[in-house]
Amino acid sequence: MMEQENEFYIGWQEHAPSSFKSSRKGFFIITLIVAIIFGITYLFIERPFIESTFDFGNLTELEGTLVEYPVFGLKTSIDDQTVTVPLVGFGKFDALPVLDRIRSEAGDTPLEKLKVKLRGTIIQYRDRMWMELTEGNGSIIEVNTMDHLPERIINNKGTKTVIGEIIDPKCFFGVMNPAYGKIHKSCAIRCISGGIPPVLAVGEHGEFSDYYFLVDQQGHSVNKEVLAYVGIPVSLSGDVQQVDDWNVIKISPGELQTSVLIKLDNSFAYCF
């Protein structure tokens, strides 16, 4: 005991006295045990990840007709089902430059009378598919004119109040996972600021069941107007429309400040 008390060690010495070595060993073992317990606990308690995918590195060709409302998309057939695949650009941007290029190639032909083949990266979550036009204008493979306008389904469903979170759909449907809540808020703001159409995901805390594109009463983009409400639980009211296989909710940007009720006060997650 006395011998141990008298032991002294300087960091640069090659050999440490036994009592110092056992202290170091004990400290290292305890740190390791705490780290392993913490790491394993973390794995079991973190929120589950949704089954979304971003087919990074693989480009897919899709053929169909173009739509502009509610967002720029490609109406195509997948597994004998007609679906609308919204189109977005590379990074945190919309695909409108590609749309402009197609428009300039088409001349006077209305956009919706065009049959196009586009190449891009598939973003998918369950039955919802999006496409990133990764190569910009190089994504345009073919542009042909049709002699008829494709059929569209537009049903007005009346005024509704929906509760959820305004997300950036590009990240949410596959590019990032998870892509909701406060951690993703800044990214979602940048995406929506860059032109990615805002979507209201109905639900909270990552449990979302339905999705609505947000537009104004005239069907125009409200990207700038909703930026302050992105990534937080919101409740909003508006006229709901079914447009093909997507839902749209028309809101009044001028009244956004009052029509959007931030529901934070009742949210457990935000009060810990």
Binding site: F90, G91, K92, F93, K185, S186, C187, R190, A228
Partner: peptide, 20 residues
């Protein structure tokens, strides 16, 4: 890189200016 790059403003500016 994940949350702030490839956007419409500089990524470091985005850290400070996205959520206000």
């Amino acid at each position: 890189m994940n949350f702030h790059s490839l956007g419409d403003i500089n990524p470091v500016k985005s850290v400070f200016l996205s959520n206000l």
